[in-house]
C-alpha cells in the first residue's frame, strides 16, 4: 500500500506543471510591441526620477535674451517664449504626467472597486441605488465633468487629480460590479458561507483577489486616457500652468507658433503620444496574457 502511494506521488510529479506564469510570460513578452511599451515606460519613469541629473537647464529659468531660439547644440529642442529650455521642461513634465496619471487611477480604482464590490455582493436595492448613481455620473462626458469640477475647485494638480479621479470612478465601479456578480456565483463563495465566514471576510479574501487581474488591466489602460485628459485640461488652461512644466500647457503655449517654432508643440505632443501608446500596448498585452477571454469586454 505504502509503495503504491509512493508510486502514485511520483507519477504526480512527472506531470509537467501547467504553469500560469510561463504562459503569461510567453504571451506577454512574446510581443515586440508590448516589449517596446515596457521599455518606453521604464525610460519615462527613470527620466522622471533622475530629472535633476539629466535636464541640461533649470526648467523654470527664464532667459529673455534667448526667447524662441531654434534647436541648436546649446538648446537641443530650442527655447520657449520666455527663453526656457524646452528639453528640460519636457523632462520635468514627465513628473506631473505620471503623478496625475497614477494618483487619479488610484483614487478611481479604490472608490470604484469598493462601490462596485458592495453593489455586486449585496445586490437588490443596494445595487440598484449605487449603480444608478454611477450611471448618472457616467451620463456626463468625462471631460465635461472634469471641467466642471476643476472650474468649481480651481486649477492646479491636486484639483485635477480629484476631478479626473471622480470622473473615472464609474468605469471601475461597473467592471468591479460585473466581476463580483460573476465571482459570487462560484461554489467557493457558497462554500465560504457554509464554513461560517462573514460577508466582509468573503469579500476581501475571496472576491477582491479574484477580481484583481481585470482591474489591473483596466487601470493600465485607463492611465493613458487620464494622461490624455490631463493634457487636454492643461491645454485648455485649467490644469497645471506655467511656470510648472506640463505637456498639455506646453502644447497650448506653442501651437500658434507651429510654423516658426514647431518643436514647441510637436515635442510635448510626441511625448504624450508615446506614453499613451505604450500604456495601451502594455494594457492590451496584460489582458491577452492574463485572460484572452477578456478581449472585447475591457
Amino acid at each position: 500500500m505504502k509503495q503504491r502511494r509512493k508510486r502514485q506521488e511520483k507519477f504526480m510529479e512527472e506531470r509537467p506543471p501547467m504553469s500560469g506564469w510561463r504562459r503569461f510570460a510567453r504571451v506577454f513578452f512574446g510581443r515586440k510591441v508590448v516589449l517596446f511599451g515596457l521599455i518606453v515606460l521604464a525610460l519615462y519613469v527613470l527620466i522622471a526620477i533622475f530629472a535633476d541629473l539629466i535636464a541640461p537647464y533649470d526648467y523654470k529659468q527664464i532667459n529673455l535674451q534667448q526667447v524662441l531660439a531654434q534647436p541648436s547644440g546649446e538648446h537641443l529642442l530650442g527655447t520657449d517664449t520666455a527663453g526656457r529650455d524646452v528639453l528640460s521642461r519636457l523632462i520635468y513634465g514627465i513628473r506631473p504626467t505620471l503623478i496625475v496619471g497614477s494618483a487619479t487611477i488610484l483614487i478611481a480604482a479604490v472608490c470604484g472597486t469598493i462601490l462596485g464590490l458592495i453593489a455586486g455582493y449585496f445586490g437588490g436595492w443596494i445595487q440598484t441605488i449605487i449603480m444608478r448613481c454611477i450611471d448618472a455620473l457616467m451620463g456626463f462626458p468625462m471631460l465635461l465633468l472634469a471641467l466642471v469640477i476643476a472650474a468649481v475647485l480651481g486649477g492646479g494638480m491636486k484639483n485635477i487629480i480629484i476631478a479626473l479621479g471622480v470622473a473615472s470612478i464609474p468605469t471601475f465601479a461597473r467592471v468591479m460590479c460585473a466581476q463580483t456578480l460573476i465571482i459570487k456565483e462560484n461554489d467557493y463563495i457558497i462554500a465560504g458561507r457554509s464554513l461560517g465566514f462573514t460577508n466582509w471576510h468573503l469579500m476581501w479574501n475571496h472576491i477582491v483577489p479574484n477580481a484583481f487581474p481585470p482591474l489591473v488591466i483596466l487601470a493600465t489602460m485607463n492611465i493613458g486616457m487620464v494622461i490624455l485628459m490631463e493634457a487636454g485640461l492643461s491645454f485648455l488652461g485649467i490644469g497645471i500652468q506655467a511656470p510648472d512644466a506640463a505637456w498639455g500647457s506646453m502644447v497650448s503655449a506653442g501651437y500658434n507658433r507651429l510654423t516658426s517654432n514647431p518643436m514647441l508643440s510637436v515635442a510635448p505632443g510626441i511625448a504624450i503620444m508615446l506614453i499613451v501608446f505604450s500604456l495601451n500596448m502594455v494594457g492590451d498585452g496584460l489582458r491577452d496574457a492574463v485572460d484572452p477571454r477578456l478581449r472585447g469586454t475591457l
Binding site: R4, R5, R7, Q8, F11, M12, R15, P16
Partner: peptide
C-alpha cells in the same frame, strides 16, 4: 484504481 489517469503529453 489507485492513481490518476495519465497525462497524454510526453
Amino acid at each position: 484504481i489507485e492513481g490518476l489517469p495519465p497525462n497524454l503529453i510526453n
